[in-house]
Design a protein around this nucleic acid. Sequence first.
DNA 1: AATATTTATCGTAATATTGCAATATACAAT
DNA 2: ATTGTATATTGCAATATTACGATAAATATT
Lengths: 110, 110
Amino acid sequence: MGATKTDHFSDRQNEIAILAKAIGHPARIAILEFLIKSDACICGDIVNELPLAQPTVSQHLKELKNAGLIKGSIEGNAICYCIDEKNLEKIKNYFANISIKLEKKNNKCC
Amino acid sequence: MGATKTDHFSDRQNEIAILAKAIGHPARIAILEFLIKSDACICGDIVNELPLAQPTVSQHLKELKNAGLIKGSIEGNAICYCIDEKNLEKIKNYFANISIKLEKKNNKCC
DNA sequence: AATATTTATCGTAATATTGCAATATACAAT
DNA sequence: ATTGTATATTGCAATATTACGATAAATATT
């Protein structure tokens, strides 16, 4: 045992879980925020911005890419990463919907 | 090595990371959705709903509680868990703000 | 009091994540 | 072609997560 029982849950639940998990690390949040904040999709400056070694940053970038939260394109020598809006919208909408449902229920719990 | 370098990132980044990480597992998403959907909030019902053993569910509930996403109150013999709205609002707003920032930028990237 | 019910905790195995040094790869510039 | 620069991959150690059987703790019921 030890591995998540992915196939016992719905596709949607797994999809949101993958997105949330990818976001669930301060370094990856810092990367996302840096990409959102900076004007151009500045390429390699992410490594300089973070308090982590280059291989570690590269790994976090890979995870964000796998989750579909960023995309990278080759720009000569360097690689240009930027936000992949679609999945950020997806998770935004997920929480927005939860919020609406909670309001309707009035959360009259315990 | 192996532990997250928490203190190299901002409080806010760590806070959101903790919330996202707690949500980043399909079982915990299923728990949250069950609590949002159903009127009941008894722990035992959650255990029946999920395809996991009781100790595993208990552990997931504990993590959600630690992250401040649910709260539990003793109800006689049983324990009643329910959504703690405040932190769900917090993460909702976080993604809503990102979305607004991305719109303003027009994401004119690569 | 004895028993049943409900939830938490302990212990442990399997697996995953985090972080980095060393190294590889790929393009730039000389 | 050689050198420099930027990023990825490999390999590995440290730590964390996931899952569950066994058991404990706490209340309910008889």
